[in-house]
């Protein structure tokens, strides 16, 4: 464990060095992502000019939810790059052989090889939105709430990683350059609004099949102190652990399949 953390740090330092070496590229891509995030909040403002409430949620509460959802999402984005490129770079181009030749867990090597550090801005913007919404709602923040926020954000990040890791594992069996991530990726946005506005089917989907709701909505309900779905917050770490275990098992099966087919 200690070695893995040290390695993670070494990988990160290396990667950041490279990233800063291409300064223009870094600045442009950071600038573009910040703009995209800010525009999304603009949409919220416009929406609430027209409707005063969304399924009983005030503007500030939706702002909180939206802001909070960006925190695990940003953490996930920092490490997710290789999940999308895995089929092409690692399986088809054969980089996975190199991974198997090193005495470090294969998943560690794949996930922590590249870092999209500019995605940390989403964490920052998310925290700002949460802070803004909390102060307008006069929420009381004690040490427990701060701890919960950090804990939920981490669980949320793990949920995102687990879901997309499972999709990545498809590459172990199917030769596929594009990957099956895009349709699921498009569902992420659904988790940024109160689940109560959706039909039962969508609620079920986002809670138990592709559990983005446990990364964003249920934690926010708890932090906002709303009555609905209150107990679901306890399930957040359970869902995160369950899905991560599942994803890891699938990954290990994939590695075994790779080793027997060499494809």
């Amino acid at each position: 464990m200690k070695k893995h953390l040290q390695l993670l740090a070494a990988y990160a330092v290396q990667f950041i060095k490279v990233r800063f070496a291409y300064r223009a590229d870094f600045l442009i891509s950071t600038g573009a992502s910040v703009l995209a995030t800010v525009f999304a909040f603009g949409f919220l403002l416009v929406l609430f000019q027209k409707v005063p409430q969304l399924a009983g949620w005030k503007f500030e509460e939706v702002l909180f939810l939206y802001g909070f959802s960006l925190i695990p999402f940003g953490l996930f984005n920092v490490v997710s790059l290789n999940l999308y490129n895995f089929g092409n770079d690692f399986i088809i181009e054969g980089k996975f052989d190199r991974v198997l030749l090193r005495p470090v867990a294969s998943l560690h090597q794949v996930i922590f090889e590249v870092f999209r550090i500019e995605s940390l801005h989403e964490v920052v913007v998310g925290l700002l939105a949460v802070w803004l919404a909390s102060s307008r709602l006069r929420l009381a923040w004690g040490p427990l709430e701060f701890l919960l926020l950090a804990f939920f954000a981490l669980c949320g990040g793990i949920i995102y990683v687990s879901i997309f890791l499972m999709l990545t594992c498809v590459s172990f069996w199917v030769e596929d350059r594009v990957g099956v991530h895009p349709p699921v990726w498009n569902l992420i946005a659904f988790g940024r609004y109160p689940l109560s506005i959706y039909s039962g089917f969508v609620q079920f989907l986002l809670s138990w099949i592709i559990p983005f709701g446990f990364a964003t909505f249920y934690p926010s309900v708890r932090l906002l102190g709303r009555a609905e779905f209150r107990l679901y917050a306890w399930l957040v770490p359970v869902v995160a652990a369950a899905f991560f275990t599942l994803a890891l098992a699938l990954w290990n099966r994939g590695v075994r399949n790779y080793a027997s087919t060499g494809s």
Binding site: L7, Q14, K17, V18, G94, R98, R102, P103
Partner: peptide, 25 residues
């Protein structure tokens, strides 16, 4: 493998070696 490198494409050679030093203790 003569056909493909085991090193990291974008980083300086010596930095690759330093990473490998950590990987292999």
């Amino acid at each position: 493998f003569g056909q493909r490198t085991q090193l990291w494409w974008d980083i300086a050679v010596v930095e690759s070696f330093k990473l490998l030093r950590k990987i292999y203790d």
